[in-house]
């Protein structure tokens, strides 16, 4: 069906927006994680990488990426909020007793983990991209490695990151599978694999991400 007013209006249309934007965000997070792994290769590597990001297509590339990300986040949130409203309205009177069978913690708390991520992203940008909010010493533009290490050395900042990554774990573990379902990417033979895939991706991303603050605190990286 060609996308028209009723498409975005329909519950399934919104779901699909959610899935597509979600997918872009997932891909970003994966890429971002991979990029960040260069922390372990030392300051030069990471800074150079950042340099490269900032100057590809004479600086335009980054902005394009940022715009895309921003658009996705905005659409994703819009869809999330409208769907959530719709769903709340569909069950006006709650049950006295609810027996849960198939739902998981992750699937039930998508909205919560989502919003945690929202806040995380905001403070994460202030913290490491713009630097307005940077405990653990002055923020020096371009000195990505320094900025990062210095702020992770502040234990509670690291803690905040770790909490955020747990939320991310929840969001992705259901989200990645959920988006395949939403996109109709299913086949009797592979359906079982879909949940494993979601968990695998989630695990890699989150473990890697958490390893950064841990490494700093543990003093591997200084």
């Amino acid at each position: 069906m060609k996308p028209d007013a009723t498409f975005l209006g329909s519950s399934i249309g919104k779901k699909i927006v959610m899935a597509v934007t979600g997918l872009v965000l997932v891909l970003f997070v994966i890429g971002h994680m991979v990029g960040n792994l260069q922390i372990f290769m030392g300051a030069e590597a990471l800074n150079a990488y950042s340099e490269f990001l900032h100057h590809m297509l004479h600086g335009g590339g980054l902005w394009i990426a940022r715009l895309v990300l921003l658009a996705c986040a905005a659409l994703h949130i819009w869809a999330a909020v409208t769907l959530t409203r719709m769903n709340a309205a569909a069950r006006p009177v709650p049950y006295r007793q609810v027996h849960r069978e198939a739902s998981t913690f992750a699937s039930r708390y998508m909205r919560v983990t989502g919003f945690i991520l929202l806040f995380f992203i905001v403070f994460h940008l202030l913290n490491l991209t713009t630097g307005q909010w940077h405990p653990g010493g002055a923020f020096v533009k371009g000195q990505v490695y320094r900025n990062l290490v210095s702020t992770f050395q502040v234990a509670w900042v690291s803690a905040l990151y770790i909490v955020a990554m747990v939320a991310l774990a929840g969001h992705l573990s259901h989200g990645i599978w959920s988006l395949m379902q939403t996109m109709g990417w299913n086949h009797p033979r592979y359906n079982a694999l879909r949940k494993h895939l979601a968990w695998a991706v989630t695990a890699v991303v989150v473990v890697a991400n958490i390893s950064f603050p841990i490494a700093v605190l543990a003093g591997f990286i200084r």
Binding site: S11, K15, A102
Partner: peptide, 28 residues
């Protein structure tokens, strides 16, 4: 009716074991 967030309670209680795969098929 509400939208689906792929929670799966529906298929779990369905007395006729209708599978969630049909939902994916519908989306496709």
């Amino acid at each position: 009716f509400g939208g689906c967030t792929n929670i799966g309670e529906c298929a779990a209680v369905c007395p006729k074991e209708i599978s969630m795969d049909f939902i994916a098929q519908m989306n496709r």
